[in-house]
Design a protein around this nucleic acid. Structure first.
Lengths: 202, 202
DNA sequence: TAATACTTACCGAACGTTCAGTAAGAGCCA
DNA sequence: TGGCTCTTACTGAACGTTCGGTAAGTATTA
C-alpha cells in the first residue's frame, strides 16, 4: 500500500472559507472566482478572508489541498482480500455508474482546478502526486492479484496506467461534455478490459 | 466516414487576432486572458479588437471555433484501406509518441478551453461535438475492420469509446501533470489493447 | 467622398489588498 | 467580583490597478 499524506487540520473559520470557495467555484468557475464572490458565499466581508489568508494565491493553494483531501477521502477504502473486487471497488469510486450530485460537483471543481496545472507549477505538482498515488493504488492491487494467482502475469504498471488514463478520460468527458452514455459505455468497457486482460484463462 | 463541419473562413485581421489570443492563452491561461493582453500580443490597441468583435464573449466563441478547427485539422487524414494502420494513425495523431512543441501547445490551450465547458453551455456543446466526431471516426474504422474480417466481432461503439477515453485521459494527464512516462506507457498499452481486443486470434 | 481600419482617451465597475477601528471574550490581578 | 490588558475575529472604507467597453477623431484606400 502507498502511504497517504497526513491530512492538515482546518480551523472552523478556515473550513467555512474553504466551503464558501467551493460553492463560489461551482457557481462561477475558476476564471470567475474572486475574493468578493467567496466573501459573498461566506456571508462576511472581504477583509475577513484576508485575516485568515495573506493573499488570494495562498487561499487557492490551501483550497487545492482541501479539494484534494476531499477527493482522496472519497476513494480511500479498506482493501479486502479479493483483488478483483478491490479493483472494481476503486474503479467504482473514481467513475461511479450512477454518480450522485456530490460526486459530480467535486469532480467538476477538480476539473476546473486541474486545468490550472497547465500554467501553474504548484497545481501541476499536486495533480502529479494525485495521479502517482492513484496509479500506485491500482498497481498494488494488480500485483497482489498476480501474486495470489488470480490474475495473469501482466505488467502491473502498464495495466494500472491504462486503467487510470481510461477512468480519468471518462471522468473528464463526464465533466465537460453531454456524453453521459459514452461515459457509461466506457465504464462497462473497463470491466470487460479487466476481465479479458487480467483474469486467468490459459 | 463522418462529415466534417465546414471550416469558416477568417479574414486576415481576424486570423491575426485569433493568433494573438492563442499566444495570450499560452502565456496567461484562460483565467488570465484579457482584451488588453490579446491587444498586447496583437501589437494594436484594445479598440482595434472591438472593431472586429462586439464583445469578449463573441471573441471567445470565435476562438473556440478557431482552436477546434486547428485541432481537427491535425487529426483529419486520408484513411487508407488497412483498418489496423488507420487506427494506429488516428491514435498517433491524438496521442503522439513524441509530441512536438506545436502539438503540446495546442493541447494545452484546448485543455484550458475545455475546462470552461464545466460551467459554459456553448463550450460544452462544442466539446460534446468534438468527442462525438472522434468517437464516430474510431468506430467507423473498427466497423470496417470487422466487415473486412480483419477484426473480431466486438461492439464497435464500446471499443471506440474505450479508446477515446483512454487517449483523452492520457492527453489530459500529459497537459496537467509531469507524468510523461505514464503517458508513454498508456500509449503503448493502447496498442496492446487494440491488438488483444480486435485482432483475430480464434 | 465614403467606407475601412484603426488610435487616443476615457468611463464605471470590479479587482486584490490594506488600513483604522471595534465588539466580544479570555486571563490575570486586587 | 470588578477592573485592566490583550487577543481574536472581524467591519467598512478606501487604495491603486485592471477590467470590459465606448465615443470621437484620424489616416489610408477605393
Amino acid at each position: 500500500m502507498v502511504a497517504d499524506a497526513p491530512e492538515r487540520d482546518w480551523s472552523a473559520a478556515e473550513e467555512e472559507i474553504m466551503e464558501a470557495t467551493y460553492r463560489a467555484l461551482l457557481e462561477h468557475g475558476y476564471a470567475g472566482l474572486s475574493i468578493s464572490r467567496i466573501a459573498a458565499e461566506l456571508g462576511k466581508s472581504k477583509a475577513a478572508i484576508y485575516y485568515h489568508y495573506d493573499a488570494k494565491d495562498d487561499l487557492l493553494v490551501a483550497f487545492l489541498e482541501f479539494a484534494v483531501d476531499r477527493f482522496e477521502a472519497t476513494i480511500a477504502t479498506e482493501t479486502g482480500d479479493e483483488p478483483t473486487a478491490d479493483l472494481e471497488h476503486v474503479i467504482e469510486k473514481l467513475l461511479p455508474l450512477q454518480p450522485d450530485e456530490e460526486q459530480h460537483q467535486l469532480q467538476a471543481v477538480l476539473v476546473g482546478l486541474r486545468s490550472q496545472a497547465v500554467t501553474n507549477e504548484v497545481f501541476r505538482e499536486q495533480f502529479t502526486r494525485i495521479d502517482d498515488r492513484l496509479a500506485a493504488t491500482i498497481r498494488d492491487i494488480v500485483e497482489r492479484g498476480i501474486d495470489e494467482g488470480a490474475f495473469r502475469d501482466v505488467d502491473p504498471s502498464r495495466v494500472a496506467e491504462h486503467i487510470l488514463a481510461t477512468v480519468n478520460g471518462a471522468m473528464y468527458a463526464r465533466a465537460t461534455t453531454d456524453r453521459e452514455s459514452a461515459a457509461a459505455a466506457t465504464r462497462v468497457s473497463i470491466a470487460s478490459y479487466v476481465d479479458s486482460e487480467l483474469r486467468r484463462q490459459p
